[in-house]
Design a binder for these strands. Structure first.
Lengths: 232, 232
DNA sequence: GAAAAAACCTATCGATCGATAGGAATATCG
DNA sequence: CGATATTCCTATCGATCGATAGGTTTTTTC
């Protein structure tokens, strides 16, 4: 049989993608597992999360995870792909608009405003979104641990976003194209948002906020916008 | 016997502190375990690290961890205390100096310079230090997961540092004492450093740097200093 | 409604985890 | 040296983990 797996280490993926035939009910179950897995992986990481708890919260039994995702790591990777997809769905139109604006040679004031718009959207996505705090937790943990989804998240999510922000900063400051300074500034700017995504518990405790109300989010946006205004 | 533990959940800590009698060799072993544990916990977190690997890297056998630290969680807490101690040893004199300068009513220009000095020291400690990347990894992970050492790290390490930076920013901008803005700015500023501590792997990959050379660290410091100059 | 495909479930395996029992080996001090 | 405290080690326990064997039930198609 040529169907036998190479078996480098695990047998694993009998059905990593739902590409081929699948009933309607199966898709619903698959999504239920994915949602529960995003929650658990986001909270506890890939080593801290247990497949049993994911199965329980998804109201399925243990072998269902293997059936649909080929195992724990396959499920983890599926979560990463899901996050990338949602990120692109929420940000892609804006990113494309800003990028075309850059290509048409928008001036520094326009670049500064675009920068504010991009960071407002990032704040909304990372901080204020319904479940996006879970996503950001997932992404930042994976980025730090360099787990199995590191490459995917870097190429599809991190690098394009930071690149765009760096280009906008470069347009504002007039730095040379090869300069690393705007890219450093972009990295620091994006990372500062981790105060309210990854480090949210300690930031809330420090500020004495119980949760992030709409007015609190506006306050955060205002501080970031002002910081962008001060870029010279 | 009144010595029987309350036993809420674990028996655990027969010797959490080396307070009482201890031979010289025992202290060395204890420190060897602590060093290996800091490395492992910093890399993999409390759930990802295994006591067996820590014991192996410390060249001791498994029960030694229970003997010296009462168990995995006791060892984890000992690591947190060790980090707080090292942090205070490296930063305390500077923090005290800056604080007394503030109390004596230093002007905005002096506050701005003090801010640069504090962040330079933070960069040195978090980014350029010999093993401090491990410490920062430990701290940020614990802060995000709100594990058993959360309270300790918040009160002894995070809150005092951010408070000082917020006070310095307030002195620079002249904000009202009750304003949340300088505290927000301080949180964002400190969190931006996570680009090169917690998120270092992805930042290095993005910049195409293989590691953080001295000149690279200087470049980072320059960008941060310039950002402090732009605070208005 | 029969046949095929897909989905689901019970029971269990082997590995690994943290913790401990119980004592041997070593160091310190009288 | 002898006594005692401290340190270290082998072996193993019970729990939990991820994965799978092997079959039953449900859904879709003809």
């Amino acid at each position: 049989m040529s169907l036998s797996a190479p078996k480098t280490k695990r047998v694993a993926s009998p059905r990593a993608q739902p590409t081929a035939g699948s009933y309607r009910k199966g898709e619903e179950t698959r999504r239920r597992i994915l949602t529960a897995a995003l929650q658990e992986f986001g909270v506890a990481g890939i080593s801290g999360a247990t497949t049993r708890k994911i199965a329980q919260e998804a109201a399925v039994n243990l072998p269902a995870l293997t059936y649909y995702f080929g195992g724990k790591e396959g499920l983890y990777l599926a979560c990463a792909r899901e996050i990338v997809g949602e990120y692109q769905a929420h940000m892609l139109t804006m990113l494309v608009d800003v990028r075309t604006g850059l290509d048409r040679g928008a001036g520094p004031p326009a670049a500064r405003e675009a920068l504010k718009a991009v960071l407002d959207a990032l704040v909304d996505l990372q901080i204020a979104g319904r479940q996006s705090d879970i996503w950001m937790s997932f992404v930042l943990r994976e980025i730090a641990e360099q787990g199995p989804a590191f490459g995917l998240l870097f190429e599809q999510l991190w690098a394009p976003g930071v690149d765009l922000i760096a280009d906008l900063i470069r347009r504002v400051t007039g730095d040379a194209p090869a300069s690393t300074r705007p890219r450093l500034q972009a990295l620091l700017l994006v990372s500062s948002l981790s105060a309210f995504s990854h480090a949210r518990p300690i930031s809330l405790k420090y500020l004495g906020w119980r949760s992030l109300s709409a007015s609190n989010v506006d306050e955060i946006k205002a501080v970031i916008r002002r910081q962008i205004d001060e870029i010279a």
